[in-house]
Amino acid sequence: MAFRGPKVWLWRWRRNPLRRRSDRVEAWVLLGAWALAALVGVLAGATVSRTVEGQLARERVEWRTVEARLTEPVPGPSPARSGAPSTERVWAEVRWPAPDGSDRSGQARVRPGSPAGTPVTVWTDRQGRLVTEPTSPSEARVRADLTGTLAGVGAAAVPLAGARLLRGRLERGRLDQWEADWARFDALWRRQTG
């Protein structure tokens, strides 16, 4: 087990006769990697957050509600027969008019027990395809912030991972140098004692 003394902060930057060239290179690599990670992380996070929030705002503007009709009766208890309004929903086939005048059909969540022809409100995009209900502005902000944060962390990890790889390479170089120095010292020692 190697002896480790107290940790000295910024030792690679201080004057020291034992400091090697690789120590100075490593210090600059770490400083550059942290600075680049901060810059790249903030820029990537902000860009992704703005992009996601813009896309969600565009969806709120473009997506519309359309009245669709059930194409077949939905099995289950009738909502009129049960006393309390049910929040339970099941998937069923519905049909709605597309913007071009053609009929479209697809699956939507409806109340169980609804008869065929029951009107159902669905959300569609510009082409008339079924979509989910768009997010509210506050939900969009949260989603954009979370996505931006994840993108920023991921982008910041790239320079840090590169620095870690370079540090490993520098450490292997230092160990190889130590081995060469010890081999040279060992040869000198054997000549003097042998």
Rank of each mutant, 00 (worst) to 15 (best):
R129I: 10
S114F: 08
E67G: 06
P77F: 09
V61R: 15
G117I: 05
L130N: 09
T124G: 09
W123I: 12
T51A: 14
G113P: 08
T193M: 07
L30I: 12
S114M: 06
R190K: 08
L150W: 00
W28K: 07
R104N: 11
V40P: 02
R4V: 08
Q192C: 05
L166W: 01
A108L: 04
G168Q: 15
G117T: 03
S138H: 08
V42I: 14
E53A: 05
T121V: 12
R69V: 08
A108P: 00
E26C: 11
D125Y: 03
R81I: 09
F185Q: 05
P115L: 12
A108T: 02
G194P: 00
A108E: 03
T124S: 07
W28P: 00
D181A: 04
V61S: 14
A44I: 02
P97C: 06
R172C: 13
W178Y: 13
E26W: 03
E53P: 04
L30T: 10
A157N: 01
D186K: 05
A57C: 12
L36F: 02
A163N: 02
A92W: 01
R141M: 12
A180F: 13
A2S: 07
G117P: 01
Q192S: 15
A44H: 01
E171C: 07
R89N: 05
W63G: 03
L170M: 12
A84V: 12
F3G: 10
G154K: 02
R111E: 15
P119T: 04
R58S: 11
R21W: 13
R109I: 03
A57D: 04
R95G: 10
P17L: 03
D125S: 11
R24D: 07
L30R: 13
K7A: 13
P112K: 09
R64Q: 14
R15S: 11
A46Q: 13
V48C: 01
V131L: 11
G148N: 02
R184H: 10
W34V: 15
D176A: 15
L166I: 14
Q127E: 15
R109V: 04
